[in-house]
Computed example of a mutant assay.
Amino acid sequence: MREAEPVVRVEGAYEVAPDLLVIPDRRVQLVPNVGLIGGEEAVLVVETGMGPENAAEVLRFAAEYARGRRLYLTTTHFHPEHAFGARVFAGAATYLANRAQAEDQKVKGPGYLEMFREFGPLVARHLDGVELTAPDVVYDHSYDLDLGGRVVRLRPTGRAHSKGDQVVTVPDAGVMFTGDLVEARQFAIFPWFPPHDTDVSGLRWLVVLERLADERPGIVVPGHGEVGGPGLLADVRDYLRLLRDETWARRDSAMGEETIAEEVHAVMLARHPEWEGREWIEKGVRCLCAEHGAGHA
């Protein structure tokens, strides 16, 4: 991705279904796709953007869009560009999240805050003043949020991109927000940072993508990249499957991990030369090397 300040630009918001907006990431690194899902009585915001400044802009835009309707907030997982602006919404919106995500933020949030501050001055500036905050409502297995004439389903997926991934679906509109379980035209982001964080699971992630693909949503809003159809789910599923197979075939032959990473990197670039995020291929390989022989359960 090109170097740019990680700023959410609300003026780019557009409607993907009736009373359902996406503020696009514009393919800027560390900017997520942000959603606004409206019902007769309330509006749900999906993702905060990174840090107080972005979150304040999202909140301002959401309040104007809501026109007096109650506000809710949810985040697809705890990573900084998705959830590290939640404190700004305190008192203005009710923050809902699954228990595993809330635990991720509590345990790993401070470490990720420090790690992301090292990504450069543009990122560090947006993390100034971040206060990690617990959700107002924490659920375990599922949560159906009634916005008034529209029910939004919040569902944890179990361990995949992180331990606390959550998918947000709007059944009446056929829309699914996936967070970083899915990216468009980008190699899957594997936050494989041993020994600090090794909770990402390529095998579980593949199982989750297969299940989500079976739901056949009409519109898929990825964590990063352009909004698309169910083909986005298939693209990531097929990539993870190929990444696993190419990695494990070499692991079975007792090839060294460095060589595996180099060879698989070349295979993936040949398959998807137009995709961004090439740095994540090696981390995916190393994750899958660690999971070698573990099976699909």
Rank of each mutant, 00 (worst) to 15 (best):
A294I: 05
L122P: 02
G179D: 12
G179M: 11
R155I: 04
V208P: 03
T76I: 14
D146T: 12
V220H: 01
M1H: 05
G223D: 01
G277W: 00
E47K: 04
Y95C: 09
S142E: 15
K163T: 07
Q29L: 10
V16Y: 02
H272C: 03
G174W: 07
L147A: 07
D19K: 06
L122K: 06
Q101A: 10
V152R: 03
D25I: 03
L145P: 05
G35N: 05
V182M: 13
D104M: 05
F193T: 14
G158T: 08
K163C: 02
V221A: 02
L233N: 01
P217S: 08
V58A: 08
L288D: 00
H126I: 11
G228I: 05
Y65Q: 13
V170C: 09
R271C: 02
M268P: 00
M1C: 09
V28T: 11
E3D: 11
E81H: 15
R99M: 08
I219C: 08
T247Q: 05
V170K: 01
A213C: 07
R286S: 06
L21H: 01
V22N: 01
C287A: 13
A42T: 08
I37H: 01
F119N: 02
Y143V: 11
L96V: 15
H82E: 15
L44F: 06
G277S: 03
S142H: 15
L288K: 03
L181W: 10
G228D: 03
Y65K: 13
V264H: 00
S253Y: 00
P156C: 09
R27D: 12
V16H: 02
R117P: 07
A234E: 13
T133V: 15
Q105E: 14
G228A: 09
G256K: 02
I260W: 01
G225T: 03
L242C: 06
R150G: 06
T76D: 11
L212I: 11
V167Q: 03
A83L: 12
L44H: 05
A97S: 14
E81C: 14
G109M: 05
V16K: 00
H79G: 11
G218K: 13
D165M: 09
G49D: 04
G12N: 08
E103Y: 07
V137I: 15
G38P: 01
L206A: 07
G12H: 06
K106S: 10
R117C: 10
R244W: 06
A13W: 00
L36M: 09
V107R: 12
H161Y: 14
R216C: 08
E3K: 10
M268N: 01
V58H: 06
V227L: 07
R271A: 14
V138M: 10
K108V: 04
R241F: 08
H272Q: 07
E279A: 09
P195H: 14
V236K: 00
H196T: 14
E282M: 04
D235T: 10
V8W: 00
V58W: 01
P24H: 01
